[in-house]
Nucleic acid binder design. Structure first.
Lengths: 142, 142
DNA sequence: TCTTGAACCTCTAGCTGCTAGAGCATGTAT
DNA sequence: ATACATGCTCTAGCAGCTAGAGGTTCAAGA
């Protein structure tokens, strides 16, 4: 029987976050003591570990909800889980290439800066005029 | 004299976003018609372009605030602007390496999945047990 | 058994950076 | 004069938490 604090600690989660997961239905409502405090079993620890690990891998809470559901039906085809992971992989790859374009642009900006006055700072100049950019970077909406 | 709609269009911004920037003090309060509609000059167009371009490069609104301030003082040393850009570059690089660790892990997960039932799906298995991971990925807080 | 104090409880509000919608006013073209 | 696209303000919502106020419970030590 774990308190919420112990559960949080074991999974590297904040106590508030655990309650938040319960609130949005990602974690089940646990049993309570007579005084009204939450007490957790190992099953809930496993579930939270799953959630946290999935978050670390960048899955959204909605995706995690799906994955948890699938995980509870061991006889179902693995196809859906696979697809969710594949989708996540694609997104990660997209974000990487966007960030790489950014990196390139930022590197160039910083490198070209002469270290003089802001009046002729390359950094500010580039920001002022997109046409000076080489790549089609776009982090907004990434 | 541009309407807010024209300004938004020219900079690839949504009208609401322009008003939002004004609200948080990133854009100045523009002149108004007798009826109370905003009208913009070229200076404001330039400023919004600067903001948008900086956003595309991933700068936070706070960083942009700084950059704009510096940009208004052409005699000041370029050092600070440089530093902000360098910081942004570092962040981008950190994010890239985190995402690359993720990609690796996700790729492995997807590849190892046999396509059978969820009961022995590698994807779900890996999510259940972090110790199966090779890398120290962590997207949370990235 | 009593007392302390850390950990728990609920509830509300805030973070970033927008975005959407309701309900109404303005501006411009015909 | 009229239509209607665009403008206005205000409020609320998105993800995924996080922090704080103000109060209660639990477990360990005296």
């Amino acid at each position: 029987m774990l308190t919420i604090g112990a559960l949080a600690k074991k999974t590297g989660t904040k106590v508030q976050t655990v309650r938040y997961y319960e609130q949005i239905g990602l974690m089940p409502e646990p049993g309570r003591t007579e005084g009204g405090q939450r007490r957790y079993h190992t099953a809930e620890l496993d579930r939270l570990s799953f959630i946290r690990h999935s978050r670390q891998l960048g899955f959204t809470l909605d995706a995690i909800r799906e994955l948890l559901k699938l995980s509870d039906q061991p006889d179902k085809s693995c196809h859906e889980a696979d697809e969710i992971a594949q989708r996540q992989l694609n997104q990660v790859e997209q974000r990487i290439s966007r960030l790489e374009a950014l990196r390139k642009e930022l590197k160039r900006m910083v490198k070209e800066c002469s270290g003089g006055h802001t009046g002729d700072c390359r950094v500010l100049e580039v920001l002022r005029d997109h046409s000076e950019c080489l790549t089609d970077h776009n982090e907004i909406g990434a």
